[in-house]
């Protein structure tokens, strides 16, 4: 029997449920739990290591089985999820919101990768994304360079928030 590749840790924050995703969403994942219809819930995708196309299918079917969920907030979305979300329509139902997501950067000094968290109402809203012109490493304080193609990586925001304006910094 195939081992479940996805671990879900159910916790509570301020009385509302938070589910931490860990592992992979793929053909071996069990994604069947019902989302609450009477209160908001947050899904934390920080430790999601991998999402493949079979997993995308499971995710979409799962969201369609939970259309009556009250408010679903996605936070700390891992680049693995962002990349597939940016080439697939229908991953985010209209009542699902994005609180934060990671963006890959690279340290210009030593070429080490580092993911930077973009947070709603800081770097983006439902109307616009402003890619910061200068980002410093949280670890070394060195300057970081954006390590994605903005036109492709941030497409998932356009899918969730049609009409969102994406402002590139002048040096890109």
């Amino acid at each position: 029997m195939t081992k479940n590749s996805l671990r879900l840790d159910h916790q509570s924050e301020n009385g509302n449920p938070v589910i931490f995703f860990e592992g992979s969403i793929d053909e071996a994942s069990l994604l069947e739990f019902k989302l609450p219809t009477d209160r908001p819930i947050s899904l934390d995708l920080n430790n999601l290591s991998r999402v493949n196309s079979a997993g995308i299918q499971k995710w979409i079917l799962w969201t369609r089985e939970n259309t009556k969920a009250k408010v679903v907030t996605l936070r700390r979305i891992n680049p693995s999820f962002v990349r597939v979300a940016s080439i697939t329509e229908g991953l985010f139902p209209s009542n699902w919101d994005i609180e934060s997501f990671y963006v890959p950067y690279v340290n210009e000094l030593n070429s080490e990768p580092e993911d930077i968290l973009y947070v709603r109402d800081r770097q983006f809203t439902a109307r616009e994304l402003r890619i910061p012109p200068l980002v410093s490493s949280n670890l070394t304080q060195h300057r970081l360079a954006l390590d994605v193609i903005p036109e492709k990586y941030f497409l998932f925001l356009k899918m969730r928030y049609p009409g969102i304006a994406i402002h590139l910094p002048p040096n890109l």
């Binding site: 493949n52 196309s53 079979a54 995308i56 299918q57 990349r83 597939v84 080439i87 697939t88 492709k152």
Partner: peptide, 11 residues
Amino acid sequence: HSGRGMQIILE
């Protein structure tokens, strides 16, 4: 899954 899978590969 195949359509999206190939798109992922090509990306």
